[in-house]
Design a protein around this nucleic acid. Sequence first.
DNA 1: GTCTATATCCAGATAGAC
DNA 2: GTCTATCTGGATATAGAC
Lengths: 198, 198
Amino acid sequence: MSPRSEEQNEAIKDERREQILSGALRVFARKGFAAAKISDIVSRSGVSHGLVYHYFDSKEEIFFELLKRAIDTSSETLLMVDGMPISPLEKVRQTAQYILRGIGEFEESAYYFLIVIHASVMEGPKHYQDKYLEASTALTTMADILAEGQKTGEIRPGDTLQMSTVFFSAIQGLAMYKLAMADFEVPDPEILVNIVRK
Amino acid sequence: MSPRSEEQNEAIKDERREQILSGALRVFARKGFAAAKISDIVSRSGVSHGLVYHYFDSKEEIFFELLKRAIDTSSETLLMVDGMPISPLEKVRQTAQYILRGIGEFEESAYYFLIVIHASVMEGPKHYQDKYLEASTALTTMADILAEGQKTGEIRPGDTLQMSTVFFSAIQGLAMYKLAMADFEVPDPEILVNIVRK
DNA sequence: GTCTATATCCAGATAGAC
DNA sequence: GTCTATCTGGATATAGAC
């Protein structure tokens, strides 16, 4: 038997973990936390039942890892756009374009939105909700951008938090339509921009 | 023992059914079909475990009844608005006002939206999806209204089905925010109107 | 019409072989 | 590192008393 190096073992471990998470993403998104069965994840990811529990302590831990990724990614996206040297309206446009492209091109992207929805709306372990609160920073970040845009006159007058909420509501809703309807086509990002544009 | 009349028995049966459905609505909305336990419904509705199965054949039948009500109600609402002798833009405004008021005032209303989401996005019995397809008539009905409005110049140019999809996406998303956030306040309906208004 | 008690099945998690 | 076999709890649904 040829012994494997530490690095090789680490690489294998990472690969298996990702393999499991990738299958679990689809299963959790489509079924929700409680309805998702370990056996579903096993089928999707092609590993054995026992191996899942070798890499994760519980079903809950797998879900939480996915939730973490979903929220971290969306926060980073918004901070990235906010840091660009462009006008407020253009920031809104970039956000809409970026997210909608993701939903259209990668099914994974829509699944991550569903994970957040499950964690936030559905009853479950309390720390899901806690983690979710971090996601609401997106709402206020966008509201701040809109307020700037009101000063420059690019953005409609009105309650910026409400506008921000409608903007993200539409995005979440679109992610769901994408998964619900087979022939769904991603709408023109400009329709989202129209929510706030003067 | 004083015998009860047929009518009284019927009234009791109806009342119990509604009692069960009312509790089940909240449970299914918050947990999804698979995660909802009969014992949850029992706690919420205040009847015994056995009685639930006296009035319904299965958990599935309860869910389906709720789904039916959700979809029938939303179809009727849209047809009602469409039948009003008002301009296309005004029809959009009435729809937004009516639905948002419902979401704001009655928690029940937001729950029904969640029921539809569960049925459409989550994996489950196939006939849920079939039933759900009826709900998509709302999308096309609204698209038709928008097309009329484009002729009269009240509505923005562009793909009307896409605009209709964004409009309803936002509504669905708002229903979720309502249930996810404790301090949620319903936004001004005019923000939704702005999606399509020229 | 309503309840409690129980049968049956299936899921999450563990143990231990290879 | 990976697998199969098994334990154990809990859920749906049923049976039958009141």
